[in-house]
Design a protein around this nucleic acid. Sequence first.
DNA 1: TGGATGACGTTCT
DNA 2: AAGAACGCCATCC
Length: 114
Amino acid sequence: MSRPRAPVGWARYYQIVRRIPRGKVSTYGDIAILAGRPRSARHVGYALAALRETDHDVPWHRVLGARRRGRAAVSILDPTGAAIQRLRLEAEGVVFDAQGRITLDDSGWRPRRT
DNA sequence: TGGATGACGTTCT
DNA sequence: AAGAACGCCATCC
């Protein structure tokens, strides 16, 4: 069973995810872009997947996927994990619409850029 | 070194 | 608007 360690590049992703304020969310694609890997969105998810077996303080539940025209949905992972993610987000004040999606224009995290 | 994998994204139908 | 197919790229064996 592969037990993915934590490559140096992953630390970059973790640090960015930690920057996401409570009540806000981001997407794998955005995290990848902020990390300087605009085409490596998959690796962000892969890096976060490794957190499941590791000791960490990364708010992984604030990272969503499948960004579609301003809206995002909870990732597919295991149904249980998805439910936990949604519960945690709602506990932080993130609002889901009737379709179970989140409006990034409202809850999306906008990192400081200049 | 090469081939396969994957918490994804974008484009086309 | 929703669903399916293809493409990207670092990491693993």
